[in-house]
Write a protein that binds this DNA or RNA. Structure first.
Lengths: 217, 217
DNA sequence: TTATTTTTGTAGTCATCGCTCCATAAATCC
DNA sequence: GGATTTATGGAGCGATGACTACAAAAATAA
């Protein structure tokens, strides 16, 4: 149901320009199948999602799966990208909005509280705490996730830097530390959300988190 | 090496009163084997740790394994308990120390920064972000971990309540919210630690986290 | 129509998973 | 010593994991 919400709104334009090649046409909507896989990975993690789970949720056979996505790991990578592009839009939208830095971060935290507790999607964040503990054979996966987390944190730091340039923040603000702090808080909120903490309590975390905002000297 | 540090210091007294029963005696140190399993689970998670990994690290055979621990899941539960008892001591020690509430929480955060980045143990926390994404068949495990996380948060709330009674905190302090906030922050710090964030940066998070401490009205 | 290209359905394959069976070893109790 | 009890070693089991082989199907190109 909600797979459709995302797939329809965002993937439709991608589905349209499907070049009609030479062979037999695909019998399924690739974007929709990817979205179903994303939701499954999001909810159960990489190890917790079996091949059969995936093909069942995507509604395709094993051969179609490998023909279209290559491998379980490749699909996971695509699912992460899809998550960032389709679900994580709010994060980058807020960071790029034309508001003062403090308001931007306040908005980021409160929106995280609502986004992490949507009832039409799995709770929490697909990336925030994923693959932090895994087998050595899955080092590639762990590094992939860690890299995504670092990128999000870097985006926070970049926005703080812009804040200094705009005069929103004192020039001697410890940007990196502040970015790491809010990054950690967001990840913690994601874990809470997965444990079933209700939206209102996450909003409280957001409120208190903004108390740590640096005061002008 | 560090397995011994923990096993020797804490498990020795437990090893001593091993009742010499009737049958053939165990050929291995149960506490030490449990500690080895704990470290493995801590580093790789439940799914990421295979049965063969465990028996190899514990230095025992499959039959000894099942005779002594019952099953992989039962061992994991024991490993969690051992973690709390052996590794997580600092948490409860600090909460029970006779200092003012603010200093207690500051100490908690800075100690977390150091404990999460010990070089003789896996980084981060074994419980903080474990099993938040897993298969439906592992619901028992996920609930176990979530319960442990809730208990830690409850311990924080209890300490805050004592702070009000001691006059450290205003009576109208939002205890639950504050506990949830610091709980989330600690979990986020644990994820950072597993991503390789150095101790100094975690200390920065701790410092900023204390800026959110409620100011007396 | 025929050839070519790509996808699909079905039926497997091979490795690993957690776990078990059972005869034997090593202790205590009588 | 003999009986009893508990632990160990070694071989193997059934289920599930991700993945593959191959022929048939469905499109386009010549």
């Amino acid at each position: 149901m909600t797979t459709k919400i995302i797939a329809d709104t965002q993937a439709a334009p991608q589905t349209a320009p499907t070049r009609r090649g030479r062979g037999r046409p695909q019998s399924f909507d690739r974007a929709q199948a990817l979205c179903a896989a994303m939701r499954l990975f999001w909810d159960r993690g990489y190890d917790g999602t079996s091949f059969d789970d995936l093909t069942a949720a995507m509604g395709i056979s094993a051969s179609s799966f490998y023909n279209a996505f290559g491998s379980k790991e490749a699909l996971y990578q695509e699912a992460i990208e899809a998550y960032i592009k389709l679900v994580g839009t709010w994060f980058f939208t807020i960071l790029n909005a034309q508001t003062d830095t403090r308001s931007t971060f306040a908005h980021l935290l409160t929106t995280a509280a609502t986004e992490f507790t949507r009832n039409d999607l799995p709770t929490g964040c697909m990336i925030a705490a994923a693959a932090t503990q895994c087998a050595p054979t899955q080092a590639r996966l762990r590094d992939l996730l860690a890299t995504q987390r670092i990128q999000a944190e870097t985006a926070l730091a970049t926005r703080l830097h812009q804040g200094i340039e705009a005069g929103d923040l004192p020039p001697d603000t410890a940007i990196k530390a502040l970015a790491t702090f809010y990054s950690a808080l967001l990840r913690g909120m994601a874990v809470q959300a997965r444990d079933g903490v209700p939206r209102q309590r996450l909003q409280e975390i957001a409120r208190i988190g903004m108390q740590a905002w640096p005061v002008p000297a």
